[in-house]
Nucleic acid binder design. Structure first.
Lengths: 236, 236
DNA sequence: CGGCAGTTTGATGTTACTCAATTTAAGTGG
DNA sequence: CCACTTAAATTGAGTAACATCAAACTGCCG
């Protein structure tokens, strides 16, 4: 969801990965590239941890990650998944302590900007402000849709919502090869994202497979019936 | 949640209502008051409607309102409740079509600023930007907490979460008279906010009453055991 | 004194969870 | 290439939480 034109000299730029989310960035609405630093984080390692101080805003350049909240009993709720080009969260631009945790789902590469640099720079560059505004809007809209999905919809619809949304986002930033998408999620991740148990996710995914809607295996999601998936998962 | 220092010459300013949420606003971080307009909206009437164009950012000066999403089958999910001093949503600052609907819960009074005015003004006033940033952060944090609550917690915890959060917010902007709070919500509103049915809300609220935790009647919420309510509803 | 909206209560149904066992898939080292 | 190991997915049986339906009750207002 979050798209922001800060990731200017991402190693993937020009290879169609970060580039895909940069559309809409006006000229001059980019931070000086020398301000960013790169970091590689291995799958399963934390990116930021709730209540820890964060000096920087993270942009995901490569791989998948997710934001989540941990409950005292150890259960976690995944708030959203992050794909290449996504800002971890725009709110990191305004807050010194992180209000959420984030973890690398695959090996990832992140680009980091100091919050202070962004704030200074955005004071005399309204293009950045506009980009931040669009991103904030997208983040909030996504959060609202998720709230409605968790509050009012059954398991089948929740899972279809997540899968439909992910395929749309993956397709938007890569060359679409028929209906096959790279898919590093375990069923436990789906469960934590849509508020179900992994066992129940398994059952629902099985019925989707039997009905010829989707097929997940070997880290690849195949959408056999995109229309049906959208119909079940449509948020409105 | 959303607190923003735009509501400068609200009719309630000085009477401790809007004033309560203005703390933290630095000098000069206020929009010229002649840019705002007032409007009264009666209980049950729409404030904004999803997909309608909105030229203005709304700030609630008096009464209660709520943001919601309507599902095609007529069911609705309430996203949050708005109390005096709250911005309807900061994202209205960046988007021309509303992504949500909002409705007055009681008779309300709103203050309206043209989006264009705010954008222009914020370009040469970094105090406004900081205030917007804080508000955006608060909105997102609230949305994240709600997601975790809907995804991972049982009926009793969801309802306690909502009531605890509301009492904190009401207390923050009014003189606290013992543990009695004005409470214009019907049980159906609670149900739509936390993803339950009104019938089940009734049962849970009854057990709270029997256990001496709260008491709702005559538009007043009495918190008899604030510690217990917080304990059940604590988001983490 | 109706009438109406909101709440409460009971009986029953459905959805999703829990626990536990089994199967499949993915590595790993010989 | 094949045993061995381990994580993930699947399946079944039993249960808990919440929804649904319908009826009775309460308070409020004209």
């Amino acid at each position: 969801m979050p798209e922001l034109s800060l990731c200017v000299s991402c190693p993937n730029r020009g290879r169609g990965i970060c580039g895909a989310v940069l559309e809409g960035a006006s000229e001059g609405a980019q931070l000086p590239s020398q301000w960013q630093r790169y970091q590689v984080i291995r799958a399963g390692r934390p990116v930021v941890t709730r209540n820890d101080p964060v000096e920087e805003v993270f942009i995901l350049c490569e791989g998948w990650a997710f934001r989540y909240l941990q409950l005292p009993d150890g259960r976690r709720q995944i708030l959203n998944f992050l794909l290449p080009g996504d800002v971890l969260s725009c709110t990191s631009m305004f807050q010194e302590l992180s209000s959420f945790s984030a973890m690398a789902l695959t090996d990832i590469q992140v680009s980091r900007f100091r919050r202070a640099d962004i704030q200074t720079f955005s004071n005399f560059n309204s293009g950045i402000l506009a980009a931040v505004g669009r991103t904030v809007f997208a983040e909030q809209k996504h959060a609202d849709e998720l709230t409605a999905t968790l509050g009012k919809r059954v398991a089948e619809e929740r899972i279809a919502y997540l899968l439909a949304q992910l395929t749309r986002r993956i397709a938007a930033r890569s060359v679409i090869r028929e209906q096959r998408y790279p898919f590093p999620l375990r069923q436990q991740h789906i469960a934590d994202a849509v508020g179900l148990t992994a066992v129940h996710v398994s059952r629902v995914v099985s019925t989707f497979r039997e009905r010829g809607v989707i097929e997940i295996s070997g880290g690849v999601l195949q959408v056999l019936d995109p229309v049906e998936l959208e119909r079940i998962g449509a948020p409105h």
